[in-house]
């Protein structure tokens, strides 16, 4: 019996069909998905902070509206993704607790500080750009609710990327001080953006099983290469350079060669040593704890209301 179920699951995945919430699935598949989707949801929620940092100071009302709407979209992405984990039997409150207790991770990129308004543009261009490269393949991932959430998220991320790039284009047409601000920001974010694809394939532990289950579709290194190839012409059009002396077109490979990120820094930030790790979690914890009386009141009110209706 179990073998039949497992066989059917394997066939569904191999046929590129979707696994849906009520279908049988191996425990490992379910756990891997909950971990991956929760981590993605946490990243959206923590990711509200670095950009939210500039809402109050946005230098024009149009940019303020764009930024506020973008950060709001991220909250929306977090919501869809937590909902997707709930189809697998997870619980949002429980996942939030795991996040603020440091038992589940989020994308390490958000542990870097946003120091100037150019960072808002560069995050849109490079960080959202890298996220899109990671996420577009997930629109075809084997778990249906995740794949469908990703289609919507990728559309919105793509819009954010365009807005980020458009901000940088505008700044590059402005004063020398603005151009310097953009280049400085690119210098700070380029390597962290490349790290978003995860460690090199030779050191990545989760890749193989996830590829077999069609949860993951491309290796870290393949996606990183794709991102570099995509970003170079954009940098040229913008008039900025990337801080990598090894970065150059390789005629033979038909791709760009590029240097290796500082993986020691990567692991240091992943393990909690980034400039903002503690701050990001403390901020999320405070919001959650400060809001507990509000959530309790909403539940209490709903219960009283239900009782009244029941009595009537």
């Amino acid at each position: 019996m179990a073998d039949d179920l497992e066989l059917r699951f394997e066939r569904t995945v191999q046929a590129e069909s979707r696994i849906e919430p009520r279908d049988w699935m191996p425990d490992g598949y379910r756990k891997t998905l909950i971990r991956q989707i929760a981590q993605h949801a946490h990243s959206e929620i923590i990711g509200m902070q670095p950009e939210g940092n500039w809402i109050s100071r946005a230098p024009s009302l149009r940019r303020k509206a764009i930024l506020l709407a973008k950060v709001q979209d991220e909250a929306g992405h977090g919501l869809y993704l937590y909902s997707a984990t709930e189809t697998l039997g997870a619980d949002r409150e429980d996942l939030t607790t795991k996040l603020i207790e440091g038992r589940q991770k989020y994308s390490s990129i958000f542990n870097y500080p946003t120091l100037t308004f150019a960072d808002v543009g560069v995050i849109g261009w490079l960080v959202d750009g890298a996220a899109i490269c990671n996420q577009v393949p997930l629109c075809r991932t084997s778990y249906g609710p995740y794949a469908r959430a990703m289609i919507r998220i990728c559309k919105e991320e793509s819009f954010h990327q365009r807005q980020g790039y458009e901000l940088l284009m505008t700044m590059m047409r402005g004063t020398q001080q603005q151009r310097d601000m953009v280049q400085d920001s690119v210098n700070r974010w380029w390597w962290p953006a490349l790290m978003m694809f995860g460690p090199p394939d030779s050191e990545s532990t989760n890749t193989e099983q996830s590829m077999a289950w069609r949860i993951k579709r491309d290796t870290n290194d393949e996606l990183r290469q794709k991102f570099v190839n995509m970003s170079m012409p954009q940098a040229e059009a913008l008039g900025v350079t990337f801080p990598d002396p090894e970065l150059k077109w390789n005629e033979e490979r038909g791709q760009y060669d590029f240097g290796s990120p500082d993986w020691d820094e990567f692991w240091q930030v992943v393990k909690g040593g980034g400039v903002c790790n503690e701050q990001r979690i403390a901020h999320r914890r405070k919001a959650h704890e400060d809001g507990s009386w509000v959530r309790e009141a909403a539940v209490a009110h709903a219960q009283k209301h239900a009782q009244k209706e029941g009595a009537a």
Binding site: M48, G52, I55, L68, Q72, Y82, H283, S292, V294, R295
Partner: peptide, 20 residues
């Protein structure tokens, strides 16, 4: 907009940003 990322619930974070 000071509430952005600080609301008691995600739904409320979205609502307050919407109003802002």
């Amino acid at each position: 907009s000071e509430w952005c990322s600080r609301a008691p619930e995600l739904e409320e974070d979205i609502a307050l940003a919407n109003i802002a």
